[in-house]
Amino acid sequence: MFVEYDSGNWSVSELCRRYGICRDTFYEWRGRRETGDPAWFVERSHAPKQCWQTTDADIAKKVIAARRRFPYMGPRKLLRVLESKAAGIAWPAASTIGDILKRAGLVEPVKRRRRALDQGRPCTAVTGPNDEWSTDFKGWFRTLDQQRIDPLTVVDSHSRFLIEVRIVAPTTEGVRPCFERAFREYGLPRAIRCDNGSPFGSRGAAGLTKLSVWWTKLGIAPHFIHPASPQENGRHERMHRTLKKQTSAPPARNARDQQARFDNFRRHYNEERPHEALGQQPPAQAYTASLRAMPERAKDPWYDADHRVRRVRGSGEVKWKGEFVFIGEALVNELVGIAELETGDHVVRFCDLDVGLINRNGMFTRFAPPREGLREPGEHPA
């Protein structure tokens, strides 16, 4: 086009009409050529040089500084923290904060995963603090000195308050002192949600162990999830993912340093970290201790007059109609009540739990834990 223009045989209007461009475009390109730039003909970006919506540089620096201080918080949580520290500043939206962090290289790309279908079994509804706690062991790992670490975690299901993160042995003897401290400090919950593995649950009568028997005597109902169904304790599993990322990747030098990390995480999680399910409030603002104080000792259960009371022997058996009937090792030295049914069979109860059935032939059949919506129809009593 410019060769023809330089020949002088064509006017600007004729050239623009011939090549389908406007006169302004022609003069723009002619001006570039006259600058002498050897790359004057290269296509340039159409992005505006300046945008009035650009976030102020000082605010962007404060956002980046907050992210460096709390590297595990996303844009929404960072916005909540910034607003609490300086409410008078017009902070950008969470989406804009995310863009600022991306430009600063502070966001790691996450591989998208196909979401699994919801099976429609939500966690037990809770209406207030201490209606239900949840507990589990985060997967074990080794510190740098090759010592095995088994972190026990306890969370209030309503407020998401992290009650305990403690390195203990995964046994009843290792776990019980941890719960004793929690009960004395925060009071007794109405229920504790847990899985079916030791030391919480078993394959015995009603899924009980020595630990869950102790809970039951204290008036705490054990809520066992379905076997191999960690999604039924999804709140707890989600907390474990955050705990692992912030405290054990990589692990500490030894168990003492690892426990110090857990203690710092618990304080940060409860008092500083905004929680999505709480409207971006930290759990400590939603939690209050239970009014049910822990007694000095757990009392033996009381049964109605139509029950025959037996104490389970050291072998796990009770004496029944001249014969020894095995009930379960978890109930050793505990009082059970035996009541007759209309069928002629006898139901065995511990506190308010039905743990099994003694038929007319003296054979004991254990009951599975009472679970809402059992998938296995043969698990619950007839």
Results as ranks from 00 to 15, higher is better:
T54R: 12
D6N: 12
V325C: 12
G204R: 01
A182F: 03
P295R: 00
F179D: 01
T96W: 13
I59W: 11
M1N: 03
G8I: 05
P283E: 01
S202L: 00
G88K: 05
C16P: 14
I59G: 04
P151R: 03
V107H: 15
L106P: 00
W133S: 01
D131S: 03
D99R: 15
V12L: 08
R148K: 15
P274S: 08
R18N: 11
R44W: 12
S212K: 02
R238C: 14
G378C: 02
R311C: 07
I225Y: 10
S95H: 08
D56R: 08
S11I: 07
W214F: 00
Q281G: 09
A339H: 04
S159A: 11
L353S: 06
L291Q: 09
V165L: 04
P199V: 01
G337W: 05
E334W: 13
V168C: 09
E342T: 08
W10C: 03
R184L: 00
W52G: 11
G88A: 09
P227C: 04
H226N: 05
W52Y: 09
S315K: 14
G314Q: 14
L243A: 09
P177C: 08
R181C: 03
T343Y: 01
A255M: 06
E83H: 06
L82W: 09
R67C: 15
V355K: 06
Q231F: 15
G20I: 12
